[in-house]
Design a protein around this nucleic acid. Structure first.
Lengths: 243, 243
DNA sequence: AACAGTCCTTGATATAGATCAACCGTAATG
DNA sequence: CATTACGGTTGATCTATATCAAGGACTGTT
């Protein structure tokens, strides 16, 4: 529904499409201009950007998972965004971010220098429009997430999280079944959902006990009953989709 | 910090500035074009737009308070946005919204017909840029809010809420003191903060007992100690500003 | 003035999830 | 192979907040 990648640009060197750039405008040659583009990699756990840091580049996430998070004075933290392959990092017209960006797994970024990219945005209205769409997509995600954080039970949170992974992984779903790999530790999931890691563990095992899920190993699970999973999310039928 | 209204356009008939339109582009005459603009009013409690409804117009909120909210299958609801005077309703490039918009108090909207407005957006890049800024502002707000919903205690939530009202009301702050009026009932505040109305009541009275707040009547309170209020928010010194 | 209808407060109780603590399994390291 | 480290599980307990319940204070209406 959101995050449609069709129509996004695949430049000649990256294995992903650049969602920030719409295929209607023929910008491939611009993206591959000498001096425009570079790759950066980060190990799992590394901080990609600190809150308040000046942005020198914008980027597409090529590989891995990264997260945006905010922290309270005493150290409690909450994830406020999750970046998967083809997602965009950067804020048109701003040069500072209000949260930390951390590599959840090993991460590869395709970075564009800020100035030429902003020039690209200004001269090609389609790109600006595309960025607008991305921002609105993110806003919809953020609002579904607020409903989750404010009103859902632990079990509903977990079910919603797993359902989101199923949707986003786009692996084949066979007669109500789907296999999913968890890209993060229990601790990080807890951080994502406003829970503690113990509660995450308990709820996952409770869903397993109820026959909704089963595990291959800690990171790889099978949804045995997709409709039961959806039941458990608390969402009304058509909506409440994160990612 | 966000929501700077300076630089926004004041058209000749509205008592507010239209934040969606930047003062740099001289669009006043466009906004006042015949057939472009109309006013709508809603009584407190009325629904302005239902989730899924087609958007026929975009609008600036001229007077009153409106809220965006989402609902789970069993009726639990969570506010996901608050609209105050000069805020914008509408999504460039989309014709549907994913949440209900409800009048919290009596509300007056200044509505622009969708087609001519979108034409305005397309022909004047400054307006498009302005809308982008608004979307990013909203995103920052949503993310602060996620931190609040996911990790703050009831007391911290209430303190953050009151601090937000102080900031946004822009009334004079005298030696650490400020007076604020609550634009909503305890129930609506609860909905805003992911709490129950009883907890809201208890926490407000607890802050009163501790000398941080005092009440004139139910809707009008005085912050007796702004720095104590900030202490109670749990935010680290510079950040965590909602609105 | 009496009434009804909201909204708010306050108390008693229940409970979901946090916290504290011990232990287990797997993978990396010397 | 033993050791360590890390992530995960499971149990016992605690506590913040929800829930249930009753009553009080405004506001508007007849």
């Amino acid at each position: 529904m959101n995050f449609s990648v069709d129509n996004a640009v695949r430049c000649s060197e990256c294995p992903i499409r650049h969602r920030a750039v719409c295929a209607k405008c023929d910008t491939d040659e611009l993206l591959t201009l000498e001096g425009m583009k570079s790759y950066r990699t980060f190990k799992a756990g590394e901080t990609i950007l600190w809150r308040g840091e000046k942005l020198e580049y914008v980027a597409s996430l090529v590989q891995g998972v990264a997260s945006l998070s905010k922290t309270l004075e005493d150290g409690r933290t909450q994830m406020v965004g999750l970046l998967l392959a083809s997602d965009f990092i950067g804020r048109p017209g701003r040069d500072e971010i209000e949260f930390d960006v951390t590599a959840t797994t090993d991460v590869t970024l395709c970075c564009f220098n800020k100035e030429p990219f902003e020039q690209l945005v200004e001269t090609t209205p389609h790109v600006a429009q595309r960025l607008m769409e991305l921002a609105l997509d993110e806003l919809d995600v953020a609002r579904d997430w607020m409903l989750l954080l404010g009103r859902k039970t632990a079990r509903e949170k977990i079910a919603t999280f797993v359902e989101m992974l199923v949707r986003r992984s786009q692996l084949p779903e066979d007669n109500g079944t789907a296999s999913v790999s968890l890209p993060m530790t229990r601790d990080q999931i807890a951080n994502f959902l406003g829970l503690t890691l113990e509660t995450v563990s308990r709820q996952l095992n409770s869903l397993k006990k109820d026959g909704v899920l089963s595990f291959n190993d800690r990171k790889h699970l099978v949804v045995e009953d997709l409709s039961a999973l959806h039941e458990a999310t608390g969402d009304d039928s058509d909506g409440g989709i994160i990612f």
